[in-house]
Design a protein around this nucleic acid. Structure first.
Length: 423
RNA sequence: GGAGGGAUGCCUGAGUGGCCGAAAGGAACAGUUUGCUAAACUGUCGUACUGGCAACGGUACCGAGGGUUCGAAUCCCUCUUCCUCCGCCA
């Protein structure tokens, strides 16, 4: 959520940023400024009236203590008339705040200056490409055939238990999942992230804090009876750990990592592109999250990107790094790098990680601040990234590493799987 | 699930209708003193909105939301959460 004061003082910049994003309702900005103006006017009147009421109440107390009952009663009568006014103004004030909030929540984050205009995935910038595509013969199979061939992932079985998009991992398939989770977690820990285990269901306040609510309401599974949501990513619980927290400056940067399953409704996406492991309703992911000093957040973003890339390199995957264009970025991000691995059998790039700097967009919602040497509290910057999301990594490993002898497990992973081939 | 007891500032903890944005102690920070460390002494020490060029003010907040009252940390209602006991259970 953008800060009202910032919007008020930087109207032109805000509009410019929104335009870059192709934001459809720039008129919201002026509406926000206008509502804020009203809000402040009401507050001024309300504060003045309250000040009078407070001093009257004090006087009445004074008079009572001195036994001047008549005078006290007279003053009481006078004050009563103010009450109605204060009550009305308070209601107006609350209404203005609610309105302001509901408006400001509709504005996405502003893109960082390096982010280019654009609205479609095709307009994303390719920052770099690493490795070579695996050279596969004519007989190369897509992963959904490989998983059936080696009986390691069962999509139909999952359908019976739950529905489409909830696969069952079997034997070496299950073991591969566990190996990847440990591999990612071990590396994150070595990189200085603290491993956390967090709830997989979150309340509404948490959903709001990281920006899933109210924007992406329909993307999350909702446990209505308890008012809870299944997490679409560990970002939600891990970042919300710091909701309503004022950190000491020396506690920064905060670096946490967590493995969680992720649940996404993915309403309305069907077809060839979502076959197999390409898009699931439940999948596993290791996430890295940082809370940092505003001066450092872009440096940290680069570090996180480099870290994620180091994982892809260790797994021997051909990948590329994209800087998302303004219109393709998530609502809450100021800058995002996507990492995509090459799926040799499908002949397409698969997104396996998204690393973003949210600047103060989340921290403003979360009230996540730090107190600096000057004693001033200010909003921290938050960042997070997948490191990594499993299904598409699995898809790429299966497809790119298929051989006559079976699926060859990447060298770095063998000590985690305990086997070299899936056959 | 049932019964009872709590929730106050960074921490401990006082406060049961006005003089309380909140005692006291501790921690932390700054300074004085000191050969160094320690101790002692002095000062600072919540958040947010808002008025003002500033100096300096105003308002709100004592788990959350409502209510009573001229006036609420204090009384009433609802909710959340923690603790103790009972029941159930991985």
């Amino acid at each position: 959520m953008l800060q009202v004061n910032y919007i008020r003082e930087n109207r032109a910049k805000v509009l410019e940023g929104l335009t870059l994003r192709n934001f459809k309702q720039p008129e919201l900005v002026d509406e926000i400024i206008k509502t804020d103006e009203e809000r402040r006017q009401i507050q001024t009147s309300l504060d003045n009236l309250s000040a009078i009421a407070n001093s009257s109440a004090k006087q009445i107390g004074e008079l009572m203590r001195n036994g001047k009952k008549d005078e006290a009663e007279a003053l009481k009568a006078e004050t009563t008339s103010n009450k109605e006014l204060i009550k009305n103004l308070s209601e107006d004030f609350a209404a203005a705040e609610t309105k302001l909030h509901s408006l400001i929540v509709q504005l996405p984050n502003l893109p960082y200056h390096l982010v280019k205009a654009g609205s479609t995935p095709e307009e994303n910038e390719i920052v770099s490409v690493h490795g070579e595509p695996a050279a596969l013969g004519e007989k190369a199979l897509p992963h959904w055939e490989l998983t059936a061939k080696y009986d390691i992932i069962d999509f139909e079985l999952g359908t019976k238990i739950t529905g489409a998009g909830f696969p069952v991992y079997k034997g070496k398939g299950a073991r591969l999942q566990r190996a990847l989770i440990n591999f990612f977690l071990d590396h994150a820990t070595a990189e200085g992230y603290r491993e956390m285990q967090v709830p997989h269901l979150v309340n509404e306040a948490s959903g709001f804090g990281t920006g899933q609510l109210p924007d992406k309401e329909g993307q999350m599974y909702h446990v209505g009876i308890d008012g809870l949501y299944l997490i679409p990513t560990a970002e939600v619980p891990v970042t919300n750990l710091y909701r309503d927290v004022i950190l000491k400056e020396e506690e920064l940067p905060v670096k946490n990592t967590a493995y969680t399953p992720c649940f996404r409704r993915e309403a309305g996406s069907y077809g060839a592109h979502v076959r197999g492991l390409n898009r699931l309703h439940q999948f596993d992911k290791v996430e890295i999250v940082q809370v940092v000093h505003p001066d450092q957040s872009y440096e940290v973003l680069e570090n996180m990107s480099a870290y994620v890339q180091s994982l892809l390199q260790k797994l021997g995957l051909h990948y590329r790094v994209l800087r998302l264009c303004a219109g393709d970025m998530g609502f809450t991000a100021a800058m995002t790098y996507d990492m995509e691995v090459w799926s040799a059998a499908q002949q397409r790039w698969l997104e396996v990680s998204s690393v973003s700097n949210f600047e103060t967009y989340q921290s403003n919602r979360l009230k996540l601040r730090f107190k600096g040497a000057t004693g001033k509290t200010q909003l921290a910057h938050t960042l997070n990234g997948s490191a990594l999301a499993l299904p598409r990594i699995v898809a790429a490993i299966l497809e790119n590493n298929q051989t006559e002898k079976g699926i060859k497990i990447p060298e770095a992973l063998v000590k985690y799987t305990g086997f070299e081939y899936i056959d």
